[in-house]
Structure formats: C-alpha cells, structure tokens
C-alpha cells in the first residue's frame, strides 16, 4: 500500500515539476522565472525524499539537504542580481 502511495505521489510531483517548468519558460517577467526556479528546487527536494523512501535508503538525505542549501543561496543570488545588478559588491 505504501509503495502504491509513493508511486502516486511521484506522479503528482512530476506534474508539479512540469507546471513549474512551464512557468519558467512562459513567465512574463524575470521575477516569475526566479519564482519558478525556487519552486522547482523545492519540488526536487520532495522527489528525492520520495525516492529515498521508495528505495529504503537513507543516503538520499544528504542530497536533499545539499539541494536545500544551494537552492536558497541561488535564489538569494538571483534576487540580489535583480536588485543591484551585481552579486558580489
């Protein structure tokens, strides 16, 4: 039963990834694209955790933690670029 639920949620998150990808390509403004990237990285964290549960391996935790850290830093850097036109001043 858990395996079925995991597969179902995998499909749901794949659809979520596609929707954010659509917004990333479509997005009328730059801020929309940054928001789409932010959502993409959070969705991929969820996908990796699900994969870890499906395979029954705790090794995926480190990957999820790294994506969380780097995703936040990249969002902050992109916003800083829009605000200042430069990342490191």
């Amino acid at each position: 039963m858990l395996k079925t639920a995991l597969l179902l949620v995998n499909v749901m998150i794949a659809i979520a990834l596609l929707l954010s990808l659509w917004r990333l390509i479509q997005g009328p403004s730059l801020a929309d694209r940054i928001l789409a990237l932010d959502t993409l990285y959070i969705n991929s964290i969820a996908l990796i955790i699900l994969l870890g549960m499906y395979m029954g391996s705790p090794l995926y935790f480190e990957a999820a933690l790294l994506i969380a850290l780097l995703g936040f830093v990249s969002t902050a850097a992109l916003c800083k670029y829009l605000l200042r036109g430069d990342i490191i001043e």
Binding site: M1, L2, M12, I15, A16, L19, S20, N43, A46
Partner: peptide, 27 residues
C-alpha cells in the same frame, strides 16, 4: 496507513502549490 496519509498530503500540497504557480494571473 499513517505513512501513506502523510505522503499523499505532502504530494497534494506540492501539486496545489505548482498549480497556483501556473494558474494565478499576476506575480
């Protein structure tokens, strides 16, 4: 049962978040 409930709830919220991202009209 509890595990499946939490997993489904999480997936549902992620999906709703992305639907909102694609559907709502302004930034």
């Amino acid at each position: 049962l509890i595990l499946s409930f939490f997993v489904l709830l999480g997936g549902l919220f992620m999906l709703i978040g992305s639907i909102g991202l694609a559907r709502l009209p302004d930034f």
